[in-house]
Every structure is written in C-alpha cells, then in structure tokens.
Design a protein around this nucleic acid. Sequence first.
DNA 1: AAGAGTAACGAACGCCCGTCCGGGTCCGGC
DNA 2: GCCGGACCCGGACGGGCGTTCGTTACTCTT
Lengths: 192, 192
Amino acid sequence: MKKDARYEQILKVAAKVFFDRGFDRASIRDIARDSGMSLAGLYYYFRSKEELLFLIQEQVFSDLLAGAKDRLDGETDPVKRIELFIGHHMGFFVRNITEMKVLSHEYERLEGEHHARIAALRREYYGFAEGHVDAALKARNRKGVNARIASLSLLGMMNWLYTWYRPNRDGTPEDVAAQMARLYLRGLLDTR
Amino acid sequence: MKKDARYEQILKVAAKVFFDRGFDRASIRDIARDSGMSLAGLYYYFRSKEELLFLIQEQVFSDLLAGAKDRLDGETDPVKRIELFIGHHMGFFVRNITEMKVLSHEYERLEGEHHARIAALRREYYGFAEGHVDAALKARNRKGVNARIASLSLLGMMNWLYTWYRPNRDGTPEDVAAQMARLYLRGLLDTR
DNA sequence: AAGAGTAACGAACGCCCGTCCGGGTCCGGC
DNA sequence: GCCGGACCCGGACGGGCGTTCGTTACTCTT
C-alpha cells in the first residue's frame, strides 16, 4: 500500500477506535488490528499513541477553522455571518462526528507542546466565534449581554451534539442547524 | 474515623481524582493515597473502581433531579418554570462542579446494571426538561420548534459549562444563569 | 474470657499496556 | 549482483494497573 494512503488510513482507524472506546481505554493493539498491521509496524508511521491523538485533533480542528473562515467569506451582515457559522459548524460536526467527538472529549489528554498547539487553535476558533457574536451585538446596539458567555453558550449547545444526535431521529444537520440558529438568535419563545 | 464519614470522604476524594485525571487515568492507588488509606483498605468500603464511579454519579444525579423538582414546586407559569430550572441547574452545577464533570464526562464508562441505572436517571431528567420546554412552547402557541432539539440545546449549553467556567472571570452562577436564561428564552438579538 | 464483627493493612498475582529491538523482505539505482 | 532505504513484523521488556489473600488490632457482646 502507498505510504500516504496507509498514513491516512491509520489516522482514520485510530479516530474510530478513540471514538468508540475513549483514548485511554483504546490500545495500540486495537488500532493495529483494525488497520490490518502489526503492533510494531505502526511505529514506523507514528512516534507514540499521544502523537496519534494530536494529529487527529490538529487535522480536524484546522479543517474546521479553515472551513468556517471560507464559508463566511464575502458575507458582511453580522447576523447572517452567525447563521453561516452555525450552519457550517453543525454540518462539519455531523460529517466528521468521529473526529469531532475525539476533539471535544479528549481535549485534556494532550500535554506539553501538543497541548499548546491544540490550545492555540481552540483560542483562535473561540475568538472567531466570540468576535462575530460581539459584532452582532454591537450592530443591534445590545448592551448587557456578555459576548464571552453568549459565544460559549453557543459552542456548548453545538458541541454537546455528539452525546445525542441520531440521524434517523433528528433529521439532517441542516434541519438541526436551522433550529439551533433560530433558537439562538431569536430565542425559544419569540413569535415574530 | 466513623464508618459513614470515611465512606463519604472516599467518595469525595474519588470524585476529585476522577475530576483531575479522568476515570481511566486515575488509579485506585491515587484515591487511597489522597484518602490516607491503604490500597486494600479501600476494598472494605467498595467492591470495585467502577462501583465508585457509579456511586458518585448516582448520588449527584439524584440530588440534581430532586433539587430541580423541589425548586419548581408551586410555580405554574411555564416560562417562569424554565427560568427556575435553568437557575437551579446552573447553581447546582457550579456548587458541585467536581461531581458534575465526572457525571458529564464519564457517562459512557459504566456498563451493565450500573449504566442502566444512570441511564434511567438521565432519561428522567432529560424528559423533565423537555416537558417544560414543550409546555412553554404550547403556552405560547409556538409551532415548528422541536422540543427535543430545543431542550437538548439548553442542556448542552449548560453542561458545557465545566469546560470554560472560571468564577473570577465569569461572575457568580446566578449571573451566568440569568444571562443564559435570557439568551435561551429571548435570543441573542432580542431588544425588548 | 471467648468469640464475633469491624476496620484496616502489606504483599503479592496476573494481566495488559506502550514502546522498542533486532531483524526480515522487497525494489529501484548503480 | 549488490546496496541502501522503505516498509513491516515477532517477540520481548518493564512497568502500572485492579483486585485479592491472609492477617492483625481493636471493640463490643455475651
């Protein structure tokens, strides 16, 4: 098998194993078996189990961030930008639910340099979200709403998705995103 | 030391250790050391590490549920009931953040009978929340809003708290609860 | 004084884990 | 025809883990 294909395949398998069993309970032996490789063979591609986690988190987080920036490009209305942000986040989350759960759930497992790199991405993404929330608040001249709390509430709402989302029951990501966007922007009881 | 006091103390220490290191990385030896007991001594009080997790989760979840019912008792206005529910959940979460993180983060670790008992509590609490959301929607004659998604969004918003809440930065639980209640009920941009 | 129950402990057992060493095989370039 | 690198593996190593066994000391009850 080609080197790059193997590399990608191992990352994918590892993400699935981490998704199913959690990082700590997952063993390198599980990943080797599901990749059709030997235990030692894996170490040709990766330095350590922790590096595997890091690479998964870094890739998915970079993609998420780049995708969000790309999606919002060209739109200037602050409220529409938040709608687009929500739509993108939810769509990406559902399409990459394996990696996104590993990112959300195993965030604290990384240490040192690895942790620092993911933490930087996190800060950037959170800041991106908060910036848009803040802009929308200013555009509507809303005072007394804390942009930090409002943006973290939004991210919590969306990131909790992996604990409950079932495609058969909850419909398409677009439906869920639309419901959440409406709920977030106009509230539960708004009748406009 | 009295038996009951020891028992409670071990549960408390275990919750703290699980909170800090995660269930899988935490070792019984850590818990024994922090409890000022020997490894073997712990097994006089508990059958297994998994049982320790179960007891922590069961106690905090039962308290949460009972507290919520108690807080809402007597209030009949559906919207006020949601406000009270949010206020209670947030206050309880912050006061019991150690156990609540262990409950939220390690939910999937339990198996068999233990898992079934916590899952039942979860169903009850989620149903409780969804029921109130549904009642408020009906009272305001709101159609087209999915009560399941709306209630799970609310719980996600609140349960994500443990990843970001810092008392010094974010103010009291009451402040955060008020912000979230306003946000949830009337939306980000409502100017009423 | 004996016996039963309670509250612990030291030491070990067996298992599984991440990692690494010492190779093997194949293949393109010389 | 050989060499070096890419790719991969069997098997072991050392360490940490959850759990258990056998025992002890103390305190009630009878």
